[in-house]
Design a protein around this nucleic acid. Structure first.
Length: 582
RNA sequence: GGCCUCGUAGCUCAGCUGGAUAGAGCAACGGACUUCUAAUCCGUAGGUCGCAGGUUCGAAUCCUGCCGAGGUCGCCA
């Protein structure tokens, strides 16, 4: 239950009634009305701008309207007091009994407490990673991988029907380069001295096992074939092995896609012709010339007529080429087919997680979604900015020597998947991110991963102690709403109120496509918990286990258990494991 | 030159889709360990929200123009 939507419903009922009673004019637009937590908690538990929004259409003073609404709100059993403040804010304080109902609801629903149905089962496709299958994932892929995965989890919790998808670029010239590079490794495996690896081939040692596998499978036969015979065989084998490696890399970060979509299947299955024909039917394809780019002109620029898609009809800067000078389809043409395929599969929302270097690609993708869905499908792109690898405050030097890059696996192996995931999510994705190997493994408040994990571990330690000291340590699970009334300390109330915000965080983060909000929320929840913990040091009767009062002990264990549920739920969305001890 | 992203405390960043006196952490300073782990907590101090206009009851948030940082710019993928 999102308490803000709950009280918004209460408010709207009142407003409707005021309209029928003639105290407000008819046909007023209520959509700008929000019910939310006040910026400053001292103003109350919830606040609404209703009076200020209604003032103009009702042609009355906002504070006057506020007074009318406030009088009605006060009649609600869950609302303790109502105040009108500033230009016309209506601030409400809730009865403490209401907070206990919320806490009880967390106890009952457990990790489902934050789940929402605002997604209404809308079909969402989240495409992320989609790295070329020509080598292991490198550190640059980390962020998009984690952001995409967490966003998918978040959307699923918010009631969307989510498909996680990986687009395999298995059709371009880079795949032939991969195959030739693997062929070299094959010759090496057959005992040949291959010398230094030539310019334009992949020198990485990860291809050595591919060469061996080829040698095992084909023996000397490949060497005796002309290139046009061995190339397809080597291509298939090396690509399959690269994809296996990529899947392993992703699994190390606990990432699993449901769909791996092959670009090649669009070329071979006629998807491209079909989709281009569909655009033609809509009158969106023509033969024409593009103006040369404004910046530095490419060396090999030649002015020529080509097949173009009218993406400018949908807000793009220039029309986009569908065919290369040799007559074959462009990469973009495959995207035409791919977008159409997604729309045809019935997705209401297409989300792409791309690196910042793909910024120039966004408008043409949006143009495609508009063209194929008639504007019904929403296409959004999250551009993840660069991750700067640091060590001890200094940038990690990455050698320009080809093949010598930091892999995703290097990073995960060094600091663990939980740290990688949390840190990649502890920043909004449009902002660049420093990832310092030393800082992220530091155990201090400066390290949010540790800080949140530590809260979870501390809660676990209380339950361990309770299991030893209490006769019936599980009895806290049977507390009633009334039993919870012994929780009256301000730090306890603050925690309950913080927990009550969780469903709203999930909903707003999902709608804004901002998983980092969950990470920040968890940090705040952990801070409130650590604060209560330390309060118990100074004030022993605020500790969780109180020897001479089982009632208080059970109520507090119920509180702790609820916090643990929410920490676990939020961490699950982020893909970080909660820990029992540090 | 066009387009995209960013600019908030000394540093690293939040700011909940336009709300009230702009918030955290680090660094600085002052406090709290016979304890359910002090790996934490409490307090003090720190601001022209890049600059200038505009929109309105109200702007860090929306619009326009500058300044600065990064990215990107037919047929590569």
């Amino acid at each position: 239950m999102n308490l803000f939507t709950h009280f918004k419903a209460v408010l709207l009922t009142i407003l409707d009634d005021l309209v029928t009673k003639g105290q407000l004019p008819e046909n007023i637009d209520f959509t700008p009305i929000v019910v939310e937590p006040p910026r400053d908690r001292s103003h109350g538990d919830i606040t609404t701008n209703a009076a200020m929004v209604l003032a103009k259409p009702a042609r009355r003073n906002p504070r006057e309207i506020a007074a009318i609404i406030a009088a009605r709100l006060e009649a609600d059993n869950d609302i303790g007091s109502v105040e009108i403040a500033g230009p016309g804010f209506i601030n409400m304080r809730l009865q403490s009994g209401f907070w206990m109902k919320v806490l009880y609801s967390v106890m009952q629903k457990g990790e489902d407490f934050g789940k929402s149905s605002i997604g209404q089962g809308q079909k969402v496709n989240v495409e992320y990673v989609s790295a070329n299958p020509t080598g292991p994932l490198h550190v640059g892929h980390c962020r998009g991988a984690v952001v995409g995965d967490a966003l998918a989890n978040l959307l699923a919790d918010a009631g969307f029907d989510v498909v996680r998808e990986y687009y395999i670029n298995d059709a371009g010239a880079q795949i032939d380069v991969l195959a030739r590079s693997a062929f070299l490794r094959y010759r090496q495996a057959m005992g040949e001295d291959i010398g230094t690896i030539g310019e334009g081939l992949y020198p990485g040692s990860y291809l050595i096992p591919v060469g061996k596998a080829l040698a095992d499978e084909y023996g000397a036969r490949l060497k005796e074939m002309p290139e046009d015979e061995w190339l397809p065989l080597v291509r298939e084998k090396s690509m399959a092995m690269m994809m296996d490696m990529i899947r392993d890399d992703l699994a190390a970060l606990n990432i699993h896609h449901e769909v791996f979509f092959s670009e090649k299947s669009l070329h071979e299955g006629g998807g491209i012709e079909e989709s281009v024909a569909a655009l033609e039917e809509m009158g969106l394809v023509y033969e024409g010339r593009l103006p040369p780019p404004k910046g530095q002109l490419p060396d090999d620029w030649e002015d020529r007529e080509q097949t173009l898609f009218r993406s400018t009809d949908f807000g793009d800067d220039v029309d986009r080429a569908l065919k290369k000078s040799d007559g074959s389809y462009t990469y973009f043409a495959a995207d035409v087919a791919y977008t159409k395929d997604k729309i045809d599969r019935g997705f209401d929302q297409l989300i792409y997680i791309l690196g910042a270097d793909h910024g120039g690609y966004v408008k043409r993708l949006k143009a495609l979604a508009k063209a194929f869905s008639g504007g019904d499908a929403e296409l959004t792109v999250l551009l993840c900015q660069l991750v700067n690898l640091m060590r001890g405050g200094k940038p990690v030097k990455m050698s320009k020597r080809a093949g010598d890059f930091v892999t995703l696996r290097d990073v995960v192996d060094e600091v663990g998947p939980d740290v990688v995931r949390f840190m990649m999510l502890y920043r909004k994705s449009e902002a660049p991110l420093d990832f310092d190997f030393d800082k992220v493994t530091e155990q201090s408040r400066d390290n949010p991963v540790f800080y949140v994990q530590y809260a979870h571990a501390r809660i676990s330690s209380v339950f361990k102690k309770a299991a030893i000291e209490l006769k019936s340590p599980e009895n806290y699970k049977n507390v009633s709403i009334d039993d919870l009334a012994v929780l009256t300390d301000s730090a306890e109330m603050k925690l309950i109120q913080k927990m009550a915000e969780y469903p709203r965080i999930i909903e707003s983060a999902a709608q804004a496509h901002e998983p980092h909000r969950v990470a920040f929320y968890l940090y705040e929840l952990a801070a409130d918990f650590h604060s209560l913990w330390n309060k118990g040091k100074e004030t022993p009767n605020l500790r969780f286990i109180i020897n001479d009062s089982v009632d208080i002990t059970y109520a507090r264990l119920a509180l702790l258990h609820s916090i643990r549920y929410i920490l676990a739920s939020g961490l699950r969305i982020l893909g970080v494991r909660p820990v029992e001890e540090m």
